[in-house]
Simulated assay, not measured.
Amino acid sequence: MEFQFSNDTFSWVLQIAKFDVSPDVVYPVFLTGALIYLFSVLCNGIILTLIVTQRSLHKPMYYIMFSLPLADILAITTILPRLLTDILTQSNVVYYPTCVLQGFIVHLYANCVNYILAAMAFDRYIAICKPLRYHAIMTPFTVGGIIALAWGLGFVLVVVMFALQARLPKCKTFIVNVYCSNMTLVQLSCAGDITVNNIYGLVLTGFTQAVSVGVQLFSYLQILKTCLTHSQSDAKIKAVNTCSAQIIIFVLFEIFGTTAILSYRFQNISSNAQKLCGILALTFPPFANPIIYGMKTKDIRNAFIVVLKKKQKVTFT
């Protein structure tokens, strides 16, 4: 991979677009964003800790789920601290290697979360539709392979995307969004054909959505069919409660992601609104996901209560 730069105009120090905030609300916006970040990291960190430390969560479902809060922490840490710093200091400067790293992680998150959600749906499909064969199918080897595939496939596809971007000669120094992405890096080029980049981006998006939506649609339709034909009402309720959190997370992720993409297709949407849509697509899921886990996943709620009770006993003894 060879990076090409035009020495006449390109600088390793890039200017990045501002998120226009009135001086009167800079500190409230910074404080709100900081609280959202701390809440997201804390709650996702608790989920990760519970899955690691609580034996009741040492199951294939939670081994796969472990990847989701991990990806959420990675995404929100990549976006929010730097954005809040720019809002507070009005510096709006980013170094080229940092920009590339941020863009890479943004796309890695967007791709891997789709595959992780598909893996979680597949696990629930096996658990509910083929319960007698669940442990025979979801062996440690299978679970490890599914997790490796979700991260590995996303990683390889994004590496190819950024390799295609890196081949373009760079001469511009302005990032047109408040965070770096593949397309904003492509727009730094001053020459070269970007047709391949555009085609690959569309193919990658289509492939990722087809795999993620296809697997989840198949899994949840089969689960619904099983629930409707099952004679025991308690089994139906358990199945719905088990899957509801994953379905809500998937719907929210798709809504925010699609809104962020479509916002740049309409000229009558303000620049700030477009930027906000992109930010929400990367920060709202990490904020909301652990809340949904806690509300909808009984095993995680129980594990958290057990830890709290142990802490109380230690405190009073």
Rank of each mutant, 00 (worst) to 15 (best):
T9R: 05
S181Q: 11
G214Q: 01
A110M: 12
F287C: 07
L252R: 07
F19L: 15
F10A: 03
F3R: 11
V314A: 13
N182S: 14
F284T: 05
Q216W: 01
A239L: 10
L153H: 04
V240M: 09
F304G: 02
Q216N: 09
L108E: 07
I105T: 11
S91K: 14
T315C: 12
R124S: 04
I194W: 03
Y134S: 06
F250L: 13
T283A: 12
C190P: 00
T259L: 15
R124T: 00
I237Y: 13
K225A: 10
I64T: 03
V196D: 05
T208D: 13
N177F: 13
G103L: 11
I87F: 03
F104A: 03
R82L: 14
Y125T: 00
L88D: 08
I64W: 04
K275A: 12
F218I: 09
T208K: 04
I292N: 07
V186P: 04
M1R: 10
A273N: 12
D24I: 12
N44K: 07
T317E: 11
Q267C: 04
I237G: 01
V203Q: 09
I247V: 14
L48N: 00
I116T: 06
A191Y: 03
K225W: 04
R133S: 12
P285R: 02
G33F: 02
V25Q: 12
K310Y: 10
R133D: 15
L108I: 03
A119Q: 08
C99Y: 00
K275I: 09
T85F: 15
V94M: 03
G278F: 08
I292E: 01
Y62Q: 08
S181T: 14
F250Y: 13
T89Q: 11
T53E: 11
V306E: 14
N302T: 10
L83C: 00
L14N: 06
Y264H: 04
V156Q: 01
T205P: 02
K298L: 06
V314T: 13
V213T: 06
M295V: 15
C99Q: 06
L221F: 11
A118N: 01
I291Y: 08
F218E: 09
S270L: 05
T229A: 09
V156G: 01
N7E: 15
V203A: 11
L14M: 05
H230K: 01
K298T: 11
K172T: 04
Y96W: 05
Q312A: 11
N7L: 15
Y109K: 05
H107M: 09
I249A: 01
I147T: 03
Q165V: 15
V213A: 06
P97D: 03
I147C: 13
D24M: 15
S181Y: 07
I292Y: 00
C129I: 02
F207W: 06
N272G: 10
Q246Y: 12
S6N: 15
I16F: 07
R167Q: 12
V106Y: 13
P290A: 08
M120D: 03
N198T: 14
L262W: 02
H107P: 02
